[in-house]
């Protein structure tokens, strides 16, 4: 085990209507891991992230980030939602959207300066979208929009990143580019938590994994717990994956 615990979830239960969609979740995510959250559609993966970030209120349980409430660590946490829930026809450009990632460190009233612009351009470069910087955002493809949101998370310069299916609808080249960025983040000591659907790539991409299906099935190092037993428990059918050693 590594040193500090980045995210700690205790007895978390969340319901939208009557029936809880997350039951009594206990979870500890160590600092510096690149973790996948896996589970079938409707398992509550997005809900778990939203509850950790305080976007929805749980019925019971608590969440702490580096031992403190989320609100006191806001600036250290970046979040890329599952397919950006924004108005794509908004009159703004790709660069401007990425710049918004810097607003958190600016605080109220202060305007972004050339420094913020520079880091936004760097982030665009990293995700390979520099040449689209002046495009109105509705004129980008789905995968390009996804990359803009990734760039926006990068400029936040957070210590914990939550990404809800960043590989959804991106091509193979982009997927490799994104995973390399995520691995770089881990190398820089950041904690990265990713909702992921492609089970085949879990051992190659991640070093930590959480199985979720309304309840937490298992959490730990990929090498130890990514096996047919846990997959079957999570997905309910007999799963066979060949794990590369």
């Amino acid at each position: 085990m590594k040193g500090k615990i980045a995210v700690k979830v205790d007895d978390l239960t969340v319901a939208y209507n009557y029936k809880p969609v997350l039951w009594d979740i206990d979870l500890q995510i160590p600092e510096g891991v690149l973790m996948a959250i896996v589970g079938p559609n409707g398992a509550g993966k997005s809900t778990l992230i939203k509850a950790i970030l305080g976007i929805i209120k749980p019925i019971a349980g608590s969440v702490s980030i580096f031992g403190k409430a989320y609100t006191s660590h806001r600036k250290h946490v970046a979040y890329v939602p599952q397919k950006g829930s924004v108005d794509w026809d908004f009159p703004t450009t790709a660069l401007d959207v990425v710049m918004m990632g810097t607003y958190g460190s600016l605080g109220w009233i202060r305007r972004p300066s050339t420094k913020e612009k520079k880091s936004a351009l760097e982030a665009l470069e990293k995700v390979g979208m520099l040449s689209f910087k002046n495009r109105q955002i509705s004129q980008l493809s789905g995968g390009q929009q996804q990359r803009i949101f990734l760039a926006r998370a990068l400029v936040q310069d957070a210590s914990i990143y939550f990404m809800d299916e960043p590989f959804q609808g991106v091509d193979a080249t982009t997927e490799v580019a994104i995973i390399n960025i995520l691995k770089e983040l881990r190398k820089a000591g950041k904690t990265v938590i990713v909702v992921h659907h492609d089970l085949q790539t879990v051992p190659e991409y991640f070093d930590w994994v959480t199985f979720l299906n309304v309840k937490k099935i298992a959490t730990g190092p990929v090498k130890e717990i990514f096996n047919d037993d846990n997959l079957t428990k999570t997905y309910g059918i007999n799963y066979k994956v060949s794990i590369q050693k």
Binding site: L53, D87, M100
Partner: peptide, 15 residues
């Protein structure tokens, strides 16, 4: 601008 475009981001950045 930010809260009109993406209220979720505004919330998570503490605005």
């Amino acid at each position: 601008k930010m809260s009109t475009f993406d209220a979720g981001l505004a919330t998570s950045l503490g605005f």
